[in-house]
Design a protein around this nucleic acid. Structure first.
Length: 359
DNA sequence: TCTGGGGTCCTAGGACCC
DNA sequence: TCTGGGGTCCTAGGACCC
């Protein structure tokens, strides 16, 4: 087995939404700024570093953010503006580097293995991005996505850190396990029951003991993560596997008519999106979150692929009626999946192409 | 102070076919 | 009359990430 030493960079735009808003509201510079919706159930999408000093962070209810820092400037998110700025940033990156795998709106991995001395051009890129887009990017570099990501995440903002796997293993040993990507609150809680709280604890843990609790597969994966082993590739092209639209009501809804109306609207949005992207799906699913936060999904796979609002809406309605929510509804969603193979569709729709049908 | 919206991946169980 | 295992497709729920 030949071991190729990879060089991976992780780029992350610092406080992205808040930074875009600061460009449009220069008077807010140096003041706490929070991007959050206005509704009663809104959450914080981003807070700048001034606001984070008050304990405000992403996904926190906006109401709580307001009480933590009433003098902060609150701005409703403008996703069209963020998408435009994101496009600007990553187009510049793609013009300078070949293997760019974007992950979400404000992050990307770069595979720099083929570049002899990658840090200098990377440093130049950071400067260029700041000059041309006004965005500050944090950079982590390492032999894997995991090392690169952990480095950029823990040294941001304005980070520029390169680490070997061995350095990551020792440097992050004292940090909580949740620092590792893939370990969230649930897994951290289960690990704590085994008295494993830090990355170092997990490094030293007995895999057999872990296996008894998590199953062999997950145990091995967790142990490997703690040692910063990761061979996942940088994926330049990613094809979506599902699309969804969902809506949290400002107050819970019991009225069937109102629920069905909302569901049809969501189905329409979804179908419009499919047609814009020239994709068709075969599975339609609904998601219902009740007032007590229980979440139920129901799915149906159709005979044919579809991109029609009518078909998607009818299927979604049938699924909702069959479930008949037993309590007031907080959230409704529609999802489509099992997309038609893109190449097959292009071939089938190519002019002059005739499908050979058996007689 | 009650917790958005858009995704991915994993697991487990049942149906069905060979 | 009782007993198989493998493979694929589908559904439902859960955890996690940005």
């Amino acid at each position: 087995m030949s071991e190729i030493r990879r060089v991976i960079a992780h780029l992350d735009i610092d406080a992205f939404f808040a930074s875009v808003e600061l460009q449009r509201h220069p008077e807010a510079h140096g003041l706490p700024l929070v991007v959050a919706g206005a509704g009663p159930r809104a959450v914080v999408t981003t807070a700048n570093y001034e606001a984070r000093r008050y304990g405000i962070d992403s996904a926190m209810p906006a109401a709580r953010a307001r009480s933590l820092c009433p003098q902060a400037i609150f701005i409703a998110p403008d996703f069209a503006a963020y998408r435009a700025k994101s496009h600007e940033v990553w187009e510049i990156v793609r013009a300078r580097f070949n293997t760019v795998g974007q992950v979400g709106i404000d992050e990307a991995y770069l595979d720099l293995t083929a570049i002899p001395k990658p840090l200098a051009p990377l440093r130049a890129l950071v400067g260029e991005l700041r000059e041309r887009t006004g965005m500050t990017v944090s950079v982590g570099v390492g032999p894997s996505r995991l090392v690169a990501k952990t480095a950029s995440a823990s040294f941001k903002p304005a980070a520029f850190v390169a680490m070997s796997r061995e350095q990551a293993v020792s440097h992050f040993a004292s940090h909580p396990v949740q620092l590792l990507q893939g370990i969230g609150p649930k897994t951290a809680g289960r690990l704590a029951e085994l008295d494993l709280r830090s990355v170092g604890d997990l490094q030293r843990a007995d895999v057999t003991l872990l296996g008894g609790r998590f199953g062999e597969r997950l145990a091995k994966a967790l142990h490997a993560r703690a040692h910063f082993y990761d061979d996942s590739p940088v994926e330049v092209v990613r094809v979506a596997k599902s699309r969804s639209s969902e809506l949290t009501f400002p107050t819970d809804v019991s009225d069937t008519g109102r629920l069905e109306e909302a569901l049809v609207q969501l189905a329409r949005e979804l179908a419009d999106g499919l047609r814009v992207r020239a994709r068709r799906a075969r599975t339609v699913a609904v998601k219902v979150r009740l007032d007590d936060w229980t979440t139920v999904t129901r799915a149906r796979t159709l005979e044919r692929f579809t991109d029609e609002s009518e078909t998607i809406a009818t299927t979604a309605l049938a699924l909702l009626r069959a479930y008949a929510p037993p309590r007031p509804v907080r959230l409704l969603g529609v999802r489509v999946a099992a997309f038609e193979d893109e190449l097959a569709r292009e071939r089938d729709e190519a002019p002059g192409y005739q499908l050979a049908l058996p007689i």
